[in-house]
Amino acid sequence: MMAWIQFIVGASLISAGVVVLALSVLGVFRFNYVLNRMHAAAMGDTLGILLVLGGLIVFSGFTFLSLKLLLTIIMLWLTSPVSSHLIGRLEVHINERLNEHVREVKH
């Protein structure tokens, strides 16, 4: 019974992650502007990876391997948003015709 629950939870987590990753790939191809594309790609980088690796953690149970997978999640969650942030910052700094794509919201 326990093994079945483990299998169902892990499999559903992994398939949800795959769906998120597929959606993010679709978004990268469908959107036209850098910042929109980054929005789609960042979803796969964080939520998709979290779901897939979480599924793998559920599969492997309380082992040393799942600790390593947890470390991988922490590493990816630290680095990938920062790189997205840097790309977005570069785009905002460099693009001279930013106003065609972006509307500034005043608080």
Binding site: M75, L78, T79, H85, L86, L90
Partner: peptide, 15 residues
């Protein structure tokens, strides 16, 4: 070069 980026600095000092 983005060497005054606070987010990058904090994360890099962690990593």
């Amino acid at each position: 070069e983005p060497h005054n980026d606070v987010i990058l600095q904090k994360v890099s000092s962690l990593i």
